[in-house]
């Protein structure tokens, strides 16, 4: 037997949570563009959303976020932290985006943890939606997840005739479902789609071997270093911190920043340690396929969502890069097979 929620019951559950003070963040259409937003009412959720243009990291790691405000008043200085003490549901995450959240947890929750990320993360439940279709640029099965994988989620929904099969994937999820009132039904789950499988095994070693290869320069020729890939990516977490003074107050603001941006590695005096287009280009992929796995003794820092593939204005295709590295690697450094 499965637990089943009709479309209406699902929306009623979310509205109930919302009325109880929980913030519901979900895919919505903003002027026709699929984006995660805090929804005023559950009926505004785009339940059929495929992969949103910008990833749900926007909620846990906002594009700009005030860390604290300081104010000078009557001879003293007050510092106020910007805290989030509510509850949130991040709704409609496909398994790739759940993996994306996990891959953000790895650096942000490693001690010393990032306070404002940890606060939001602990107070947010992840409600996922398994994929019934995949897009041509999807490759989640190449990076440690799959279209129906509930790992890293609290609740998993699967679309079936007339509604959703709902399953708790953690204790947090079970608690969240207490108000859901699902029906018990005998239902069979649809066969998940099979996205393209890429040769991701051994990628860090191949990358190290091809670190100085001319490949990066040729790839960088057409890159316009526009940051789109980093900003739509669920696992790119670089940021910049700036102070915004205004009269007697000042805000310390964290904003997204990208390794592709012109000033990212510019030092005082003007020298840029990654001045060439090739070095910039390599950095984005080295972070995902080499530095991250080496630093955190973990998997590749890519969720296979394909957002960067879809959004790149000049078709820098991460899938093609993975295949190219394999091809060049096999011909120049051996297959790696023992």
């Amino acid at each position: 037997m499965s637990r089943f929620l009709s479309r209406e019951a699902l929306l009623a559950w979310l509205d109930g949570l919302r009325e109880g003070g929980t913030v519901v963040v979900a895919p919505t259409l903003v002027e026709g563009v699929s984006l995660y937003r805090q929804v005023p009412v559950a009926s505004e959720i785009d339940l059929d959303a495929s992969v949103t243009v910008v990833s749900p990291k926007e909620w846990l790691f906002p594009a700009s976020h005030t860390i604290f405000t300081v104010e000078r008043k009557d001879g003293r200085v007050d510092l106020r932290e910007n805290t989030f003490d509510g509850r949130a549901v991040l709704f409609g995450l496909h398994p790739c985006d759940a993996l994306g959240v996990h891959l953000m947890d790895v650096p942000f929750l490693a001690e010393p943890a990032d306070g404002s990320y940890r606060e939001r993360r602990e107070r947010t439940a992840l409600v996922g939606l398994s994929c019934i279709r995949c897009r041509p640029e999807c490759f989640c099965t190449s990076v440690d997840t799959s279209p129906d994988d509930p790992t890293h989620l609290d609740v998993m929904l699967t679309l079936v005739e007339g509604g959703y099969v709902v399953a708790a994937a953690s204790d947090k999820g079970e608690a969240l479902l207490a108000s859901a009132k699902p029906e018990e039904k005998a239902l069979s789950l649809p066969e998940p789609p099979a996205p393209e499988k890429l040769p991701t095994e051994d990628l860090p070693r191949l990358f190290r071997a091809l670190y100085d290869d001319g490949y990066w320069g040729r790839l960088a020729d057409r890159c316009i270093h526009c940051n789109i890939c980093s900003y739509v990516c669920p696992t790119c977490y670089c940021f910049d911190m700036r102070d915004y003074p205004r009269g007697n107050t000042a805000e310390r603001v964290q904003s997204w920043e990208s390794c592709q941006a012109p000033g990212f590695t510019r030092l005082a005096g003007g020298h840029d340690t990654r001045g060439s287009k090739a070095a910039k280009m390599r950095q984005r992929f080295a972070h995902k396929f080499l530095y991250f796995p080496e630093t955190f003794d973990s998997q590749l820092s890519c969720s296979g969502c394909g957002r960067c593939v879809r959004a790149c204005p000049v078709n820098i295709d991460i899938r093609e890069i993975i295949s190219d590295l394999k091809k060049i690697g096999v011909s120049s450094v051996g297959s790696g097979e023992k």
Binding site: V54, A63, I224, C226, N227, Y231, A261, P313
Partner: peptide, 9 residues
């Protein structure tokens, strides 16, 4: 999203 792609292109 202030990616500045409009400028870069």
């Amino acid at each position: 999203i202030r990616c500045h792609a409009c400028r870069q292109v």
